[in-house]
Design a protein around this nucleic acid. Structure first.
Lengths: 158, 158
DNA sequence: CCGCTAGTGGAAACTGGTTGTCAATATGTG
DNA sequence: CACATATTGACAACCAGTTTCCACTAGCGG
């Protein structure tokens, strides 16, 4: 540590750890944010996926949109339906596979989350320069892409 | 949306989503990385905490170091001990609370993870400019701090 | 029309984390 | 020393997600 060469790898490793911490904190704060609406972060995310689609979705479509498994999405959908945020519509394409649509309560709730989220993001972003945020977003996306395709030059050489 | 004002809040929201995605991918790839060593990402993290400390730790100390709850850490410690990566030492300070130390196998395994992690980070970071990585780390840490203290105008003491 | 395959939901077991409770051990204060 | 309080481990229930298996449905090719 005395001679401290700050390598790209070491900074990236620190970024990884920072991502873990920020991720955890984000979920934690997100839970608090929507708790008054009787939601959790994950239920919020499912509801948001349906709202964003602007139409009724089947369970596999929600899973696809969220990047989780079909069964994981199904669990949340079942609960959300039970609690009145979503309603099941007959699916003309598949009789055993209903479509999930926002109820009036669901619609109202998702609107509320949006204004909460907006206020939250504004408060958080206030202290941070726009340019930093932009470049961070870009770098994170770059990292994500690298993670997606980690073997560009398998046996190939320079 | 026609006139597209890129606000700080909107960029920050995108960063949040990026953090979620990167976090997921990181865990996924991390699992793959250490699977040959009979570890998972979380077990790796626990083992790493003990290794980093350089001495035997109690369960609450591990939890503290990892930022998870005492019980969560305990679960992993029990498994790690069962599988021979850690051994329990008598704690002179507390007779019911053992200290966990790396076994030879544990030490060997954590060394292996380090070289794997290093190679991985090097490969990932190769495509990314050092300056971008540095500023991203700094911004993420800034966001983390903002998340930690969302009410800066509160206690101006200490 | 029949049968095969792909898509779909449900249930169960598992991972990794949380909270809560309880009992036992440490610690500090009178 | 004695007692109140804080740590700690064990256990159980729960949340959020995964994988796996089973059964039913849709759709396509013979």
């Amino acid at each position: 540590m005395a001679t401290n060469p700050i390598t790209k790898a070491s900074v990236l490793t620190d970024i990884m750890l920072a991502v873990f911490r920020v991720n955890g904190r984000l979920l934690e704060k997100g839970d608090l944010l929507v708790a008054p609406l009787n939601l959790t972060s994950s239920r919020w995310q499912v509801l948001g996926a349906v709202a964003l689609a602007g139409k009724a979705l089947s369970a596999p479509q929600v899973a696809e949109a969220m990047g989780i498994t079909r069964q994981g999405a199904q669990k949340q959908l079942n609960k959300l339906e039970e609690e009145g945020f979503l309603e099941m519509l007959q699916n003309p394409r598949h009789e055993r596979s209903p479509l999930y649509a926002l109820t009036a309560q669901g619609d109202q709730t998702i609107s509320a989350t949006m204004s909460l989220q907006n206020a939250w993001a504004n408060a958080l972003a206030a202290q941070l320069p726009l340019q930093d945020l932009k470049s961070t977003l870009q770098t994170l996306n770059g990292i994500y892409e690298q993670l997606d395709s980690p073997v560009p030059t398998k046996g190939a050489k320079t």
